[in-house]
Design a protein around this nucleic acid. Sequence first.
RNA 1: GUGAUUGUAGCUCAGUUGGUUAGAGCGCCAGGUUGUGGCCCUGGAGGCCGGGGGUUCGAGUCCCCUCAUUCACCCCA
Length: 430
Amino acid sequence: MPQYQAVKGTRDIFPEEAARWKYVEGIVHALASRYGFSEIRTPVFEYTELFQRGIGSTTDIVGKEMFTFQPDPKGRSLTLRPEMTAGVMRAALQNNLLSSAPVHKLYYIGELFRKERPQAGRQRQFSQFGAELLGVSSPAAVAEVITLMMQVFQSLGLQGLKLRINSLGDTDDRLRYRCALQDYFSPFHDILDDASKERLDKNPLRILDSKNPALQELIAGAPKLYDYLNPASVQDFEKVLYYLDERNIAYEIDYRLVRGLDYYCNTAFEVTSSELGAQDAIGGGGRYDGLARELGSSTDVAASGFAVGMERLLMTMEKQRLFDALVPQGPLVYVVVQQQDLVDHALQIACRLRNAAIKTEIDLASRSMKAQMRDANRMMASYALFVGTTERATGLYPLKNLLTSEQTMLTLEDLLELLRELAAREQLQL
RNA sequence: GUGAUUGUAGCUCAGUUGGUUAGAGCGCCAGGUUGUGGCCCUGGAGGCCGGGGGUUCGAGUCCCCUCAUUCACCCCA
């Protein structure tokens, strides 16, 4: 066993997998840009209070999942970010973004940290991409972020994802509903599990999330949030659904969808993948108009956003074999050296090729020709170029097509010419 | 934090009721082909059997502890 291993809940991403990440990230950047979102990068740690205020102290994330530390005895408590939205909102408020322009559309890709027990689809360090649309209170804003998210899934070729959506109403709606829930559940106090008992006081909405089979019947009979929405909230929700219908985005209304973070209001949504095991949420989001004030803003900031788990996304894509066509690009030419004393000469040639923008590989470990050829074959090089004493003397080098095994003798000048042409053609095919 | 699961070669895994020197496939390296890959053949390297303790004449195998893994609960991406 190695002396050191990766910290629990963290892992390494090796080249083959990194290529898949790059591919997905490329799509995210392209589509976010097409929808008019600009990238923002915020620090991986923030003052702990930001998350306590922003996410809500009753949430599990803040209650038990944060990596919190104190850099020095007098310093303020810091926390590795467990989600992105609070940091983005902080950045926007701190820099008065909304006074320079009333609307801001931001997206991000970044690493998050939560101290949970790892399991399938759950890591202590994980990544999300997401978008935040600030300064627009119209239902068109939520529809816009949902559309972008679904567009990413579609462009990646994902199938069978399920979008569930609900309205949590405005603050007053939720307050009234909260009371109704407390009235409903209180008589059954003895039946509730410990977690639900605690939520009864702090955040009764979250009882609805419970997967405890013993409670399902009771939960099914609970009052519906939808019945407590005021006309404006209903209208807002209907409009969001209208946009989704119009864009052919399939969804399912789920009146019990609540979501774990305190800052949501009005629309909330979640996307699940049936191929993920127990942790099947691949993305989610909603409207969070209350967050800015919670973070000390003197004005309201309407906000909508979503976040998608990269690992879960990649996992689902792998299950659906969406990376099969993603084959690594081998070198165009592999320089094969006959013997030790020619290495420097071969290196010179390799440099010339590379300076001509030709993807070139050469063995630096002085292995046998057979080993070099095997290597070239393994990394799927297109051509092998042989460098030996005769070649150096005559200036004619054999170039072997590794697919057809054809071999032709060329001067270095002709070689550069030919390979440059081939490289250009390869570029076009990509 | 709770429950279960699995730890044997780089990887995937065999290993009998406890019994000599712990195996296979793939991968890696070399040779067959002394200047040329894939396929084939031959050979080679590579193991504190997760760690510690115990039972036993004897432990990869049985018992206890511990560490790690994986899955699930809670919750979330």
